[in-house]
Write a protein that binds this DNA or RNA. Structure first.
Lengths: 336, 336
DNA sequence: GAGTATGATGAATGCGCATTCATACTGTAA
DNA sequence: TTACAGTATGAATGCGCATTCATCATACTC
């Protein structure tokens, strides 16, 4: 039952070689004759031997483990997709993802020691924002860090984010050109840079175009909060004729509030634009006009930063990925 | 930059003790005087020392890592939720989740050696089905295995699943009592036991109630496939007045196909019942009657099987969790 | 054919920790 | 005072592997 697992010594003995030779047989660049390698691998196969990654990690100082910190993964399908993409890509590089979840209540920094103790080769941080000194402890040890859709100013951490400010500007132009008169903004949680930048680009561009102040309500990146915020926005004498929601998930709630609760016609009486292009956005019920943000590209870029093909891992780099406005049926399009 | 990370020897030196004493200071059950422990921990704090989990794993034969295999995580929000729950619960037990993704095309068994090499303390398999001998290799090494919503007959693996057969029966009763005349079933992918059992319970119970054969179409556990399957089912002279979809996600597609493509009124002309109770099911647009399946309970049960409070890990146990019919507005309810 | 480069292999070692085992030290009973 | 628990600590060791380093066999040069 609890038989000691087979080691490289067992394989060595069966193959009639020394233990280091077994090691070399499993090292693609190992100095070993083809015939010996074949003999060793055959012996390994017979014994069901697999090199112990933990022991290997101890000597090589490389665990092939990448730490991935995520908070609130399951709000939308975006982060699950990021997660799958990461796992897939890293697996292809022979690396594995060690997952850490941040509790709503507790700060991220609390689990950092845990992560550090696992000697991860790199650290990916998504949808949560750690303290600067924690990050620096990793980078100072030579562990590259990359944050997704978050930035912490003046750190050695890399960051990959969709260009939220540019996206906000896209929406501003789209709604302004669509001849909307009473434009509103539905914010996400205030502290997130994501939300702030989307709003900034949106507001700046509207101002540039000569459009004045706009009304604003706050949601919390959930369907329900979008639903409620839409009611506050719309259930009044002078309701907006366009709402830019800082996230698709809120936009869906907003659309349902407008249509089913208030009987407002979309897009005739109200245009709704989201952000993210989650899968549901293209469902016929919603057919949501939104800014598309590719999880796959985000991940691809992040992986390239921490495990570049031929260079040293990057440090302190910030990459912004442009978004794309996807016109669907939830918003009145500009003429022409 | 690449300064050798601090080890227990560094801490020992600073605290004026030997290395084993440092070890004991970090072991809650370690034989060590309170004053010495305090001194050691203070020294550790100063140096930013954290015990190396990899090295520890080598000596203790316990990595505190749990392997989690998932395929197709991001179809719905159910598995992401399972994932988060697992991570959270295991973190609370001082354990971490090492994630493995199975590619659509490749068999699960291919990544098994990788998992084995990481000496995981336990293995959780979700939404994918491995070969029996692979499983047995883990359990024979004393590594408990638990599968979620899948079973492989005659293995030493544990399994936790929602009682799909009972759920199917619930739906059969509900639709039969609702006086539906032309009941149809929308199947998921045929090979999955999940689908087969839901269908079996449904069919058996209908037969018991004296209802004859029912029409059937096949989807693939996606919104789009549900949409298409619904068209095949409904776009004919004698369309069903009730569809039981083997998964919510297909039910949503089916509802949209019926309402928006064919102009069928729900629930007046057609009742739709799903399975899973994903978050979208309760959105006003869908308001889907379905069988609720708790991800949290599933995870809780699975964790209890592989890490029982006071016993040995379970082996070969199969636990079925009852589902619950959630009546909403997408289906005509039985009178009374 | 003597000398040198090349390649394949084994002996020895250490990664950082937990865990024996042995030792010193403290207090209590005889 | 002697003896004997009990406690706290350090020296030594090994987990399983990769990586020097040294050794030996072979091939090649002039």
């Amino acid at each position: 039952m609890t038989s000691r697992s087979t080691t490289s010594y067992d394989v060595a003995q069966l193959a009639g070689v020394s233990q280091p030779t077994v090691s070399r047989a499993f090292d693609p660049k190992g100095n070993i004759s083809p015939s010996t390698r074949a003999r060793v691998l055959e012996a390994a196969r017979q014994l069901g031997y697999q090199p112990n990654a933990i022991a290997r990690g101890l000597t090589t100082q490389r665990t092939d483990i990448v730490g991935l910190i995520m908070g609130n993964i399951n709000r939308s399908l975006f982060y699950p997709k990021v997660l799958v993409e990461f796992t897939r890509r890293l697996q292809a590089l022979g690396k594995q993802v060690l997952l850490f979840n941040t509790h709503e209540s507790r700060p991220v920094d609390e689990i950092m020691p845990r992560i550090m103790s696992y000697q991860v080769d790199a650290l990916v941080i998504a949808s949560t924002t750690p303290g600067r000194e924690l990050i620096d402890r990793f980078t100072s040890m030579g562990t590259p860090v990359v944050m997704l859709n978050r930035t912490v100013p003046q750190t050695s951490a890399n960051a990959v984010a969709s260009d939220n400010e540019a996206g906000g500007r896209l929406v501003a132009d789209f709604l302004f050109d669509g001849r909307h008169q009473r434009i509103a903004f539905m914010a996400g949680v205030d502290v997130t840079a994501t939300n702030a930048l989307r709003k900034k680009g949106f507001a700046d561009r509207l101002r540039e175009r000569g459009y004045g102040a706009f009304r604003e309500e706050q949601g919390e990146y959930t369907y329900d909060s979008g639903y409620e915020a839409a009611l506050r926005l719309l259930d009044r004498d002078d309701p907006p004729d366009a709402i830019f929601c800082a996230a698709d998930i809120m936009a869906l709630g907003a659309m349902d509030a407008a249509r089913f609760k208030l009987g407002i016609k979309i897009p005739d009486e109200l245009s709704v634009v989201g952000y993210d292009d989650i899968p549901m956005a293209k469902w016929p019920t919603y057919d949501l006009t939104t800014i598309h943000q590719s999880a796959a590209r985000l991940v691809e870029t992040a992986v390239e930063l921490i495990f570049p093909e031929n260079n040293e891992p990057a440090s302190g780099q910030v990459v912004l990925l442009p978004g794309e406005l996807i016109q669907r049926g939830s918003a009145k399009a500009p003429p022409g």
